[in-house]
Each structure stands twice: as structure tokens, then as C-alpha cells.
Amino acid sequence: MAGVTAFLLTLIGAALAVGLELLEAMAIVLAVGSTRRPRDAVIGAAGAVALLALAVVVVGPLVLARLPLAPLQVVIGTALLLFGLEWLRKGVLRLAGARAPSSSLQEYLEEREAMEALPPPEPGKPDWPARIVAGKGVLLEGLEVVLIVAALGAGPQGLAPAVLGAAVAVVFVVGLGFVLHRPLARLPESHLKYAVGVVLSSFGVFFLGEGLGVEWPGHDAALLYLAVAFVAVSQAQIHAVAVRHREVPA
């Protein structure tokens, strides 16, 4: 039972985190491709994917595989907490109405506006602004994907659920790319990102404790009550921040 819980939480966490990051990367590439030459957007994105492949090799076999288990769990737990708590903090603010909701569609429109303000590319010459903007977007979002999947893959169930979750997310996001953009506008991105924050933070505390020799009651099932604790505390914070913002409007 505990093993199934850890497997499912890893799969869901990886799928949501990867899906949301890919969605943001795709919004940037589509915005660049639709305002400049699509070829340059693809070249920029492909360059970033090549750099990410290099990062996978460095993070996986060269770093993670060489560290002993306990220090590795401490490093991964800390990394997951840095990512997870930031997603959770933004999630609390968004759901409390103290921050604009997360929207890849909005990001797409803003990126389009920024690209339209640039002078048009010269015919026959490489469009470096388009390549750099598309490449930077894919690189930054992709780097987070690599780190999150690698960290979740170091969990009790191994890489399988993290990679499976990532694969599901890739299929979903690529599929969504074909039927953009109305489904994009309907995605509850703020809620999904809040859920990712809860999952990553739960894994972060779990790994940090395991790496320091702590025995969690219920073993892998501890992930469940850790997630419940994060949900309970963050929901109270959402309520408190929302009340404060209603009391003192902008």
C-alpha cells in the first residue's frame, strides 16, 4: 500500500510539474514562431533541447549515480524543498487573490507583444533575437523539468514513475499544442501549480529526513500525511491572506 502511494505521488507530481513547465515553454516557442519565422523559433528550441540533453547526462550518471545514498537524499530533499515551497508560496498568493493567476495563454500573448515590438528579421539572415528568446524559454523551463524528474526519480520507487509521469505530460502537452488555444485558457493552472508545490514539498521533507536517518512512521505512506500537513497549513494561509486582501483592498 505504502509503495503504491509513493509510486502514484511520484507519477502525479512528475506529470503535473513537467506538464506545466512544458506548457510555459511551448507558449514562448509558439509566440516566437507565430510573430517571427517559425524556423528560427524551432532552431532556438532545438539548441536548448541539446543543452538540456547535456544537463541530463551531467545530472544523472555523472553526479547522482556517484553520490552515496544518504547525502544524495539530503541534496535532493533540499532541492525539492527549494522548488516545492516556491511553487506553494506562489500558489497560496494566487489562490488568495494576492497575485495574478498563472496563465500560459497570458504568457503567450505577452511574449507575442514583446516580439512584435522588435524590428522584423532581415530576409535570408538568421533571426538571433527569435532564436535566443525561444531557446532561453525552453532552457529555463526544461532545466527545472530535468532537476524535478531527477530528484523525484531518486525516490523509493526509482526512476520509473517519474519518467512515466513525464512521458504522460509530454504526450498531453504536445497533443494540446495541436488544439490550442481554447483548452489552454480553461486549464486551472494556479490550482495545478499549487498541487505540484504540495507534492514536491512533501517529497522534499521526506527525503531530507531519510537522508538524516529519521524514521518516518508508516515509511513511504508518510508522504500522504506530509502532503495533508502542507495542504492544511497552506489552506489556512490562503484563507488568512484572502481575508486580509478583502479587508484592505488595493
Binding site: L85, V205, E215, V233
Partner: peptide
């Protein structure tokens, strides 16, 4: 005590860090 309660101490510290990071949202505006 560390083996059995250490994890919950870590959880408490992390939740406090989250609350502190949200403090500006309580004070602002």
C-alpha cells in the same frame, strides 16, 4: 527522539519558513 521525532521537527521548520515567506502578503496594502 531524533529518529522518531526529527522528521516532524523538520516539517515544522519548513512550514514556519513558508509562513515567514508569506508574511509580506499579510502586511502589504
Amino acid at each position: 527522539w531524533w529518529r522518531h521525532a526529527g522528521g516532524f521537527l523538520l516539517l515544522a521548520c519548513v512550514l514556519i519558513a513558508l509562513a515567514v515567506s508569506l508574511a509580506p502578503a499579510w502586511r502589504r496594502r
